[in-house]
Amino acid sequence: EQGGSAVINGITDFFNTYILIVGKEEENRKLLHQIKKLEQDKNKYTETELENERLRNILKLTSERPDEITVAEVFARDPSNWFNVLWINKGSGDGVAKDMVAVTPLGPVGKIHRIFDDGASIILLTDVNSSVAVRLQSTRVVGILEGRGDGTCSLKYVSKRVEVKVGEQVVTSGLDGIFPDGLFVGYVSEVKKEEGEMFQLIQVLPAQDLNAIEEVVILKR
């Protein structure tokens, strides 16, 4: 009888332990579900806060610029030129036209290239087909900013006689008739004076990460 009782007690203990384990697993599943939901809620909150901050900056920019025509969202990138061409959700039906300038609160992004009724593409400053009339802010010397296709730009036609320092700010000059005067473009990141060359080799790093653009303001020409 004692042996039978021991077996029964053992079976009972086994099932009690099993039920306890199953209960713990169910509790753990519920806890994991709650944790995942909290993480999702946190991510949504963070995204909302970031979006609100961007929109506040955009709103401030539009209130300061009488030449603003519309605010547009970036909805795609060109598969054939991923890092240098953006697509926005505003087009000719919204008053957008070719060569209009796209900016953010941090400065110019590029200009309108292809245009449709409800969308348009923007060639970024870093695209090899981009050229912008600029000036060195401290010396006021003018030049042409050309995209290199690698996330940086080259400042062309600056004489070797001009003292150019790394870190110097570059702004638009307005001399191309497209980009307004005085927009902050970026910083000089490298300067070279090679023998036999008439002009300096100057590399410019854009003032903002052009791969992180989500909204732009389109300016009238």
Score class of each variant (00 low, 15 high):
Tyr157Arg: 13
Gly93Trp: 00
Lys156Ala: 06
Ile11Phe: 05
Val71Ala: 14
Pro180Glu: 08
Lys111Leu: 01
Glu168Gln: 14
Val134Asn: 08
Arg56Asp: 15
Pro108Leu: 08
Val134Gly: 03
Ile213Met: 01
Lys30Cys: 06
Ser63Ile: 06
Ser121Arg: 13
Val85Thr: 07
Gly91Arg: 14
Val71Pro: 13
Asp150Ser: 00
Val191Arg: 03
Asn52Ala: 13
Glu64Asp: 09
Leu61Asn: 10
Ile178Ser: 08
Thr12Val: 09
Ala76Pro: 11
Asp181Glu: 14
Gln169Asn: 01
Glu25Arg: 13
Asn89Leu: 02
Ile218Lys: 02
Thr62Asp: 09
Ile21Asp: 08
Tyr18Thr: 10
Leu106Lys: 14
Ser173Gln: 02
Gly151Ile: 11
Glu73Lys: 15
Lys156Asn: 05
Arg56Phe: 10
Ser92Tyr: 01
Asp99Asn: 13
Thr104Ser: 10
Val166Glu: 12
Ile178Glu: 03
Glu47Arg: 15
Arg114Cys: 06
Lys98Arg: 15
Glu51Val: 04
Asn129Ile: 01
Glu49Gly: 02
Asp13Cys: 11
Asp209Glu: 03
Val191Pro: 09
Arg161Trp: 00
Ser154Glu: 05
Tyr18Gly: 07
Asp67Gly: 01
Val132Cys: 09
Gln40Asn: 05
Glu214His: 12
Gly10Thr: 03
Phe75Ile: 13
Val191Cys: 04
Thr152Lys: 11
Glu168Cys: 03
Phe15Ser: 13
Lys90Asn: 12
Trp87Ala: 05
Lys30Pro: 01
Asn89Gly: 06
Val96Gly: 02
Asp176Tyr: 00
Arg54Gln: 15
Arg161Phe: 03
Val101Gly: 03
Glu215Gln: 05
Asp117Pro: 06
Arg140Tyr: 07
Pro105Ala: 08
Val171Lys: 05
Thr152Pro: 00
Ala72Met: 07
Phe184Asn: 01
Trp82Gly: 05
Leu106Cys: 04
Tyr187His: 09
Thr17Gly: 11
Ala133Glu: 04
Gly147Val: 13
Val171Gln: 10
Leu55Ala: 15
Arg140Lys: 14
Gly182Asp: 11
Arg148Thr: 07
Ser154Thr: 11
Gln169Pro: 00
Ala120Met: 10
Glu51His: 07
Leu145Trp: 13
Asn9Glu: 11
Asn43Phe: 08
Leu183Ile: 10
Gly182Leu: 10
Gln40Lys: 10
Arg77Gly: 12
Glu64Thr: 12
Lys44Met: 14
Gly93Arg: 07
Gly182Gln: 15
Lys165Ile: 02
Thr104Ala: 09
Ile69Asn: 11
Val22Gln: 08
Tyr187Phe: 15
Val22Pro: 00
Gly151His: 05
Asp150His: 05
Phe83Asp: 06
Val171Asn: 02
Arg65Lys: 13
Met100Glu: 04
Leu136Glu: 10
Glu214Asp: 10
Val164Cys: 02
Trp82Arg: 14
Asp118Tyr: 04
Gly107Tyr: 15
Val142Asp: 04
Glu49Thr: 15
Glu68Pro: 00
Asp127Ile: 10
Val142Trp: 00
Gly196Lys: 08
Glu195Met: 15
Thr70Cys: 14
Val103Thr: 04
